[in-house]
């Protein structure tokens, strides 16, 4: 039994946290071969070879694989499938773009966002915005899976897997990358941050969101937002935490002016410690908070910034 794991590679660099968490998830399934693909991927392949539990790394470098365009990346994976029984990846937006395409080309069902491995054919996954957890058993010969990284710990370092180069397949030429507009920020990445400070509709405006950012910087945290705050234009969509945004599980999650809609809870309820500040004591967020403070956030947050 063998696993092919698509590493998360962005501009030639390995996203270690997401990839190492997927390694932990895939470990019970068999020997793990990592695929590092990209316009440049050698450095990412080297980094991946040091993850504990990885037995081999395949590096595919080709201009057509740059920016992880789905058509060429899926074609590459299908060309490498051979005897691999599980084809897996961390559930990043890149993998969610590519992996269902791979599954359809292999004529197998997709198993998206798996949060648990029961056995080689059986997996747990959240459905209905996290309101239910399904256990599904696949009858397909090959399983294509993305793993929800927030439920797995990252595998350690110290490995020394063999690294091998593989060729890209002919570029289908269906799509072309034009540009990335990534938010330039010194803050940690939202899905792997140890601390996340999020603001909701209660923050009231884009200008007042600066207060959330200030608290985040004080704590060395990433900034998040509820869908309501994003819809109201207070925060960009890539800050959105929830079923339709990012799923996070930091050591500390601070929810400010967030009521706690089900879809938001689905994105953060695996956090180790949850703090909620909200003036409505009936807000559902208090049902999941370890420490709840019923207060006006415009008074409490500045005090908190001062006292931490």
């Amino acid at each position: 039994m063998a696993v092919l794991l698509l590493a998360e590679v962005t501009d030639g660099e390995l996203a270690m946290d997401a990839t190492a968490k997927a390694v932990t998830a895939a470990k019970p399934l068999g020997k793990i071969t990592i695929l590092a693909a990209g316009g440049s991927a050698a450095a990412a392949g080297d980094a991946a070879s040091k993850i504990d539990g990885v037995s081999k790394v395949l590096v595919a470098e080709d201009a057509s694989l740059g920016h992880r365009l789905a058509e060429s990346t899926a074609a590459l994976i299908v060309s490498l499938v051979g005897d691999f029984e599980h084809i897996v990846a961390p559930a990043t937006t890149d993998a969610k773009n590519v992996m269902p395409r791979v599954a359809a080309l292999l004529d197998v069902m997709m198993i998206s966002d798996a949060s648990g491995v029961v056995d080689a054919n059986t997996f747990e996954r959240p459905v209905y915005a996290g309101n239910a957890v399904q256990t599904v058993r696949s009858s397909d010969a090959k399983k294509v899976i993305t793993f929800r990284t927030s439920t797995f710990d990252a595998a350690g370092g110290g490995g020394s897997a063999v690294v091998e180069a593989v060729g890209a397949v002919t570029n289908p030429g269906l799509s072309e990358w034009i540009e990335d507009k990534l938010a330039a920020s010194d803050r940690p990445e939202l899905t792997s941050a140890g601390v996340v400070v999020s603001g909701g509709r209660g923050v009231g405006s884009e200008d007042d969101f600066a207060m959330i950012e200030k608290l985040a910087d004080k704590l060395g945290a990433a900034v998040g937002a509820s869908r309501a705050a994003v819809d109201s234009g207070y925060a960009p969509n890539d800050w959105q935490v929830g079923q339709t945004g990012k799923v996070v599980a930091p050591d500390l999650y601070v929810a400010i002016g967030i009521s706690g809609a089900i879809q938001h809870l689905a994105g953060m309820k695996d956090s180790k410690i949850i703090v909620a500040i909200n003036k409505d004591e009936e807000a559902p967020i208090f049902q999941v908070a370890d420490f709840g403070l019923v207060a006006d956030l415009f008074e409490a947050v500045p005090q908190l910034i001062e006292k931490l």
Partner: peptide
């Protein structure tokens, strides 16, 4: 995919105010 079972997610223990 056979759905073996569907359960409610694990609840968090209630915290304090």
């Amino acid at each position: 995919l056979e759905i073996v079972k569907t359960v409610e997610p694990a609840e968090r223990a209630a915290g304090i105010k």
